[in-house]
């Protein structure tokens, strides 16, 4: 058994980058402030010192160009990792991501493929307002050709980032600004492990209801589950999707088979979101498992406000999760 140690999500990501760059010289990093400063959120700190400016490159504020260049480098055999300071800014390069990167393998009949990672943080909770807080997982998951990963724990963050770098396809790797300083058990540096892309995990077993979530919402969901158990005796099973696309419905359905109830929670917009997708698939694929209507909880259709109480109002976090679960369990009474 590997001796685990406690470390932060931030440190786990930094280690993943370092270890992959040591392992494979085709891996390199581009982005704004990543080299000399070490990344606005310090994810790339000290990498310049070890790998030099040829492999850790500060770019100008030109997202279209450097994401497009990542495509070019990946097309000819490199493994670029680009950092986007706030995932909101990927929209500036939407053509490169959706029209180019996501379609390249297909449009070329598989002649060219793109082992690249676009990573950065998203999400609310720190009063950054409308253009620095949104979650784009549902948007990215909507398109074919992009793997979308959104780990919540340091262990998963490290294992999935390594897997993303080793994957031969484009991966949009979504971190969350509320997660960077959270801690968890991770094997020591240089104990090589990966977490497979496309595999969900039950993070808390329970009997009454399956709550599927990912990224920072996982922590809110786990906290909600504890309180629901304590105060109401409701036993929620929390499934961490970890990868949004491709979606591991097998693990979700196995859980729903045990609980008969399904709630999907995420911080991207509920409207046309991942939760809507999970619920729709449940009705298409496993309607017989549902004892009560499946539901979703996401952001309401408003831009994200700065003011603390306003932002807290709309984030689909613990308070909303508990309220939704209670409503759903009330339905149990009604249906019984």
């Amino acid at each position: 058994m590997v001796q685990m140690r406690k470390t932060t999500y931030l440190q786990a990501l930094n280690e993943a980058l370092r270890e992959e760059m040591r392992r494979d010289e085709r891996v390199f990093i581009m982005g704004e402030d990543v080299a000399y400063y070490g990344g606005l959120f310090r994810v790339t700190r000290n990498l310049l010192e070890e790998f030099g400016p040829q492999r850790v490159m500060d770019t100008p504020i030109s997202e279209q160009a450097f994401i497009g260049m990542a495509l070019g480098a990946a097309a000819v055999g490199m493994r670029p990792v680009v950092e986007i300071m706030y995932m909101d800014f990927t929209l500036v390069a939407a053509d490169q991501i959706f029209n180019q990167i996501g379609k390249y393998a297909y449009m070329t009949g598989g002649r060219v493929y793109l082992p690249l990672v676009i990573r950065g943080q998203q999400g609310g909770g720190k009063n950054y307002g409308s253009q620095h807080s949104q979650s784009l997982d549902s948007l990215y998951a909507h398109f074919p050709g992009l793997r979308v990963v959104a780990p919540a724990t340091p262990y998963d963050a490290k294992g999935l980032l390594k897997a993303a770098i080793r994957d031969d396809n484009p991966v949009v790797f979504l971190e969350h600004k509320m997660l960077y300083f959270t801690t968890g058990e991770v094997p020591p540096p240089d104990v090589d492990y990966t977490v497979p892309i496309g595999l969900a995990e039950v993070k808390r077993p329970g009997r009454d209801l399956t709550l599927v979530t990912y990224s920072y919402c996982l922590l809110e969901a786990l906290a909600a589950a504890e309180e629901l158990a304590e105060k109401y005796g409701i036993d929620v099973e929390v499934v961490d999707l970890r990868t949004v696309n491709p979606m591991d419905t097998e693990t979700i359905w196995a859980s729903v088979a045990r609980t008969g109830r399904l709630l999907a929670v995420h911080e991207s917009y509920a409207n046309c979101g991942v939760g809507a997708e999970i619920v729709a698939r449940a009705y298409e694929e496993v309607p017989h498992l549902l004892k009560a209507p499946a539901r979703r909880l996401g952001m309401p259709p408003v831009p994200i406000p700065v003011s603390r109480p306003l932002e807290q109002e709309i984030l689909p976090w613990k308070r909303h999760i508990m309220a939704t679960v209670l409503e759903m369990m009330h339905e149990r009474v009604a249906y019984a």
Partner: peptide, 10 residues
Amino acid sequence: VPHAAGMALA
């Protein structure tokens, strides 16, 4: 255009 620049970089 940026694709070619990326290939040149590689």
